[in-house]
Design a protein around this nucleic acid. Structure first.
Lengths: 228, 228, 228, 228
DNA sequence: GATGAATGAGTATTCATTCAT
DNA sequence: GATGAATGAATACTCATTCAT
């Protein structure tokens, strides 16, 4: 069973651990989270909480009741995503092929990131990473550590790779995605392939880089959602 | 056309490309550029133009006379940097060892980026990529292309690498630098080494990854210049 | 009218004067009053009703059921204090020395005020003076009147002093206390002494007090710009 | 010549001492000050700067350009008033009758206060009293000190009165005025008379004033629970 | 040309009060 | 009756950009 099951029992958020949210409050909380997810995904953290409230169909005050500030909302969102990542890592660990497990985790995490501006921003700019996020990251790291050390034990991965390198690799992929969005949302796969080749302890041959590179024109015409 | 014509017509706004600026105007332009470079380098784009003007010792209006808006100023700055990069690339091209030339360019460009928040921001978030920047990038790409194809011709670099991959590699390094700043400003070298290993057409052994990885604590305690 | 009628009609809002509160409702009312007393005493009216409710261990809604609004709560509190003042005045009246009785009342009331921000605020800024407070003040004034007239009859106090001057003297002391708090919470005694000297009848030349005193009605109807 | 002359030369406010405000800027500054004076006088500090801006016929930004925040605006206003008080004190000092001089100053200052809510609020709640106000008070105290000591030397005033008692007497008058406003704006005169009687040295029995007076430093550093 | 004054839409957050559960 | 969730007007302050001097 994956860690997402835990989510349904203890809803993350402000509520005292003991008492579950009232029916309507819980519904609003979900609406807010959903609205924030959409908005953050589309346009990143620049969205105002007023906007989130409007999209969620509630008053601003309600948003502030549930989440003391923007960061807290981002945290809650991030935690859901981290949970998804932990699930991914756990599935990858189930793969009998140690190398394939690690690589597929990198790819799936990359796919998750490439679909979500908000997640990328949290990952890359997280001043936002204080509270629950730290805890969430701590849940992820152990699994990732297993993924890495297991692959190293099998001689499939270079010996000097460290578990903490994995999140940084994702940061790199996130950056590349942001760079080429929306024209080439899949470009990150090209660079993942490059990096993955660098992860091998020694290489016989080379796997062709997937995904066409940016054309010179594309390099010049990056157009992304304004970020101020 | 004579210079007296300029007096009678006086087109407001940016000077026509051909017409040189008046002596004092040119000096102001340089001051503004210098001030902006310092400020952006230290704190990124969040600096206000009022601040730039103050540091430059001119009024805001003067800034706006020289640069239609904040982006244009960033563009101009970027152009300077691109010039530096072009220089770097040309020096790298002078290296008789094709592989070493390419790698050293990647490293030097990385060093440039890692020292300059503003440059990283322009590179990564350039909604700012419209004006002079495009032209500037066009100056860079040919040299980089030579660097890459020359190395490929020598069999030193994987055949499917494309010149446009180079800027994206720099984007990745910039992201990683931003992530770990200010605690570990050199961490990008670690990932450059990884990528460089991935660039080889086939590998006998592995070069140890330089620079210690982030500790788990560091991964959780990223502290970067707030970007709002 | 029987109590069953109350059940069928159930007028929402404050209980009719005659009808006693249900046991638990009464307990809640006391808790709220106690919490508000503590909080207002410490920090004045800036405390939110949410806070009062939390400290009282009830929901905000309950606070609003008992007290139509913040002012009403303040009023109720003030009434308690007025009762304390009435007690004080009665004790002072028991003093066989007419002069000492009056002076000790002024001092004891001053001490009460100096220990309680909330009381001072009600006294000084009472937009709050509408409801029960009026009634409460009416209970105080007669006793104060006795205190004053008795002392005047004995020739211990200047003849032109009016009972309504007493609360205004307390207002002055409250203001001075607020002014110097928390550094010098007892400074009001200095000014009380000054004023008390001014109250004595025998002086070389007595200047008649100019300007008619506030009428009892005026004392009750102070209306000032709300200050939040 | 009184100190108000100084005002026309060095306009108080943000401007660098050396350079005078541009004509239009100066006009706006005056408009803002005038609007703020009116509004504060009518309704105290609760007025928003948006309102001040509207009444002054300028944008909010302009208000903020001249005065970093509400306090600074209040300071500037207060300084004008302090200047007026200093003028008053100087005129009072010119009175050959020492007793009359002191009493008339108390009365005139009281009149000034009774006409201006804003001034009373600054006087009574000045968290606002940090910057220029402190300096301004320092200008006032010396003159007041002369007024007091001169009267004492002449035997016209009780020996234990201290110069710092004077502002506190004004605080008391301000409180009384606030209390009875708008019904009886002159009521403060009644209490001034009472206090003045208490100031005389010759009475049957004089009770020494208890409690040490505030030191000049304490007068300047009043710290009270903010009331917004 | 240069200056810096003016603008005002925009943002995060608070809190008295109402109302569904 | 009690609860606490929901509301949203209100507030202080910022900053890119325009325009009068």
């Amino acid at each position: 069973m994956t860690s997402s099951a835990a989510q349904s029992i203890r809803p993350p958020g402000r509520a005292k651990p003991g008492r579950p949210l009232r029916r309507d409050a819980a519904r609003n909380r979900e609406r807010i989270l959903a609205a924030a997810a959409e908005l953050f995904t589309e346009r990143g953290f620049q969205v105002t909480l007023d906007e989130v409230a409007r999209r969620a169909g509630v008053g601003v005050g309600t948003v502030y009741r549930r989440f003391p500030d923007k960061e807290a909302l981002a945290d809650a969102l991030f935690q859901d995503r981290i949970t998804a990542l932990v699930d991914l890592a756990e599935q990858a660990r189930a793969d009998p092929d140690e190398w394939a497990g690690l690589v597929s985790f990198l790819a799936q995490a990359g796919a998750l990131l490439s679909a979500d501006v908000g997640l990328r921003q949290i990952l890359m700019f997280a001043t936002y990473g204080q509270d629950r996020v730290g805890e969430a990251r701590s849940r992820l790291l152990p699994v990732v550590t297993q993924l890495v050390t297991r692959a190293q034990a099998a001689g499939a991965v270079r010996a000097d790779l460290r578990p903490t390198d994995i999140p940084l690799i994702e940061v790199m992929l996130a950056a590349v995605t942001d760079y080429a969005r929306p024209a080439r949302p899949e470009i990150w796969r090209r660079y993942l392939a490059l990096i993955v080749d660098g992860l091998q302890p020694s290489r016989r041959g080379v796997t062709e880089l997937p995904v066409a590179p940016l054309s010179p024109a594309e390099v010049e015409n990056v157009m992304r959602a304004t970020r101020r």
